[in-house]
Write a protein that binds this DNA or RNA. Structure first.
Lengths: 143, 143
DNA sequence: CCTTGTTAGAACTAATATGGTTACAACAGG
DNA sequence: CCTGTTGTAACCATATTAGTTCTAACAAGG
């Protein structure tokens, strides 16, 4: 299976940077993430639309619109990793309705997949950007 | 984000069919899943390699190699939905080591993503093929 | 032996998502 | 006005996916 887009990890990286540095520009962020500034801008637009950050056009610089204690990985996930229909599990769409198994299997599977996804999202919602910022700071100290 | 491959849902469908019908051929299965037989064979090869089913070449027909009580959705997931490095969360690969955040963020995120994935897999491991077969049978009865 | 129905799999295609890149417009402050 | 920045469209190379065509191998019945 294909991995999830790395947009989520880049977005978390971006938020941690904005929470740590004073108003970094897109180019500075791109330098830390190590990618093209346009890629950063694309993701920052999604974070903006989700109400997580504010960006000053023209003059540059961005800041968090919410306390990092109140931004969870699930918030970021929803902001940047939108899946059609909100279900990450792809399903074959036209099982044969003439077959009893074909007719009933889709609904039964959907329920199980939804539960599995809910478990993942519940875990993501328990980690905040603050927590990651703290980890970065702590590991940095001993040097 | 792109949805996961529908191989997982097709594989579950296949296993439920094999557990329900007596030795269905690939074409019959393809009829119920409503796709090309080669797609079915591709998935069945993975299920074979995982030791979940046995297929009789030439003469046709397949059967489960394990009691459906002992096949979980996680088993099927592992059989067909292999992700490189076993991590479903893609991460940007070269954060700038010259930046404190860039240097430390990858490990911190990896831990959180792994936990989220574990939560999902744990939930998948709690549902068996038998359970889905039963649901199909039960819902079919009232007709 | 040979016909038939099947599994096995290589090779190819169209559609789609993705990260990256270039180019240019809009904007704000000195 | 000049400069550095954000905003965005357009395009590209790559990879995954489900699907398709085609051919070979195989096993059983006649």
């Amino acid at each position: 299976m294909k991995q999830m887009s790395s947009r989520l990890s880049m977005a978390v990286h971006i938020l941690c940077l904005i929470g740590t540095m004073p108003a970094p520009t897109g180019d500075v962020i791109a330098g830390s993430v190590n990618t093209n500034p346009v890629v950063i801008r694309r993701i920052m637009r999604m974070l903006k639309q989700a109400g997580l950050i504010q960006v000053r056009p023209g003059v540059g610089g961005s800041k968090l619109l919410r306390d990092p204690d109140r931004i969870t990985l699930l918030d970021v996930y929803h902001a940047v990793d939108i899946v059609e229909g909100n279900s990450m599990f792809g399903m074959h769409e036209h099982p044969n309705p003439a077959c009893p198994v074909g007719r009933m299997i889709a609904g039964a599977m959907r329920r199980e997949f939804d539960e599995a996804q809910r478990a993942m999202e519940q875990r993501l919602s328990q980690t905040t950007i603050r927590r990651l910022m703290d980890q970065v700071g702590r590991e940095r100290a001993p040097s």
